[in-house]
Design a protein around this nucleic acid. Structure first.
Length: 429
RNA sequence: GGAGAGGUGGUCGAGCGGUUGAUGGCACCCGCCUCGAAAGCGGGCAGAGGUGAUGAGCCUCUCGAGGGUUCGAAUCCCUCCCUCUCCGCCA
């Protein structure tokens, strides 16, 4: 959610950001008009309330309350009726009332883009910031991970379909073990880099989901239970970001860095036909997430740091990858700036997203009410929130399988992972 | 799931129809004292919104959430949510 005050005082900045995202900025005119109407209605209401209060206090002080009440009755009745109407009007216009037109407009305004975000309409305009490693050259015909996995008996798609339908998979034996090793490896590295490990709930309330801005972004993509009105998390970003919601954090505690290993659940309803083979896109996948609550002045440094935390994992796993800065048209709703980490996927002959690291500035913090105090005397301010995958387990696993496959159909385990896996070759004798 | 108790400011905890947005303790901040610190003493210290200059001041709202009664509600009534204790069930 954007700060209405920023929209009011610097509408041009918001307009520019919307345009860069390829959105129609004319909604701002409606926002500004409704906001003016709202404030005028609010002033009317407050005037009536103030007068009513004064009269009530006079009655409270009077020795003969009955007489004092009778005397003021006509005016009080007028005020009661008046403020009831004004209350109604304010409720219709208020930006903080669910379902009001102003609120609806505000909820659909994406975060302000950072100036450093490159221009461009879609992913073709994304800018590669740096690359690491060379795509492997095979002296045999490399196989996609689903063929490798089934041949090695570590991936089972047929039985997964039988149990749960499409877009599910089963890991078996060394495959399951490798996935667990990756999770452990990622969490350990995060801990070393100062992240506090959290084991959060996988089901959260509608309010929590709303507070991290997922309801607009993923609303069709989320699994939901009608009985309890609980949502299965689409990413651990949700519980980790909301973790300190409604709190005022001591400035000395910033930055707060959290990590969690959780499954993620997504309907992926609109994604039919895209990357359907294998484990690239699933209804359920595991991920280690990294979240920062940052001092606002340092959040863009924090984004570099967070991105480096994720990238270091790919380097340690010896996986060729590149870091791209998303262009204006490709940056997500919540984010001011995003770097994607893309790993080389031989079967696609392309780099594919394995992590997305975003600075959401105060956009989520405002919804979630995550604040801090600069010092004992200052007013609470919103922190900046950042999130990134570090990393998605399934995609790392498939990248590892495809990049480290050998002519005999076995797969080498990267050295850094060996102690975690307990073996150095998958399918070795 | 059943029975009971309760949800108040950063925290603990009073208040249970009328200048109470809220006594007091702790924490925190400023000052005095001190070589320095502790202790002690004095003072300050909730949040949101509107208005003003993103100042002072003024105004409104907020005591889990939402409704109601009343001139007036943290205080009374209703609904919902949550927490705790005991019982039941259970990995």
């Amino acid at each position: 959610m954007l700060d209405i005050v920023v929209i009011r005082r610097d509408p041009d900045r918001v307009r520019r950001s919307l345009q860069r995202r390829g959105l129609d900025p004319s909604v701002l005119d409606d926002v500004l008009r409704l906001d003016t109407e709202y404030r005028s209605a609010l002033a009317d209401l407050e005037r009536a309330q103030s007068e009513r209060r004064t009269l009530s206090e006079q009655i409270g002080r009077a020795p003969d309350k009955a007489a004092a009440t009778a005397e003021r009755r006509p005016r009080l009745d007028v005020l009661a009726k008046l403020s009831e109407q004004q209350q109604e009007r304010v409720r219709e216009l208020a930006p903080d009332v669910e379902g009001s037109p102003l609120r609806a407009l505000l909820e659909h305004l994406p975060n302000l883009l950072d100036e450093s975000v490159p221009d461009g309409a879609d992913e073709r305009a994304n800018v590669t910031v740096r690359a690491w490693g060379e795509p492997p050259r095979f002296d045999f015909t490399p196989k996609p991970h689903w063929e490798l996995g089934e041949a090695l008996g570590i991936l089972d798609f047929e039985r997964a379909v039988r149990l749960s339908g499409s877009r599910f998979s089963i890991l078996k034996g060394d495959g399951a073990r490798l996935a667990r090793a990756l999770a452990q490896f990622f969490l350990d590295r995060a801990t070393v880099r100062g992240y506090v490990e959290i084991a959060p709930p996988y089901l959260v309330t509608r309010a929590t989901m709303w507070s991290t801005g997922q309801l607009s972004k993923f609303s069709d993509a989320m699994f939901h239970d009608d009985d309890t009105d609980l949502y299965l998390i689409p990413t651990a970003e949700v519980p980790l970001t909301a973790l300190r919601g409604d709190e005022i954090i001591d400035a000395a505690e910033l930055p707060c860095k959290y990590t969690a290993f959780t499954p993620c659940f997504r309907k992926e309803a609109g994604a039919a036909g895209k990357e359907t083979r294998g484990i690239m896109r699933q209804h359920q996948f595991d991920k280690v997430e990294l979240v920062w609550l940052s001092h606002p002045e340092r959040s863009f440094e924090a984004l570099e740091s967070l991105t480096e935390d994720a990238a270091s994992l790919l380097r340690e796993l010896e996986l060729p990858h590149r870091i791209v800065a998303l262009c204006a048209g490709d940056v997500g709703f919540n984010a001011a700036k995003t770097y994607d980490l893309e790993v080389w996927v031989p079967s696609a002959k392309a780099y594919r997203e394995i992590s997305s690291c975003s600075n959401c500035t105060d956009f989520q913090a405002r919804r979630s009410a995550i604040r801090f105090r600069r010092d004992a005397k200052s007013k609470p301010e919103y922190v900046h929130t950042l999130n990134g995958s570090g990393l998605a387990i399934g995609r790392t696993l498939l990248a590892l399988m495809e990049n480290f496959q050998r002519a005999d159909g076995t797969i080498a385990v990267p050295r850094a992972l060996e102690p975690y896996a307990g073996f150095s070759i998958v399918g070795g004798v």
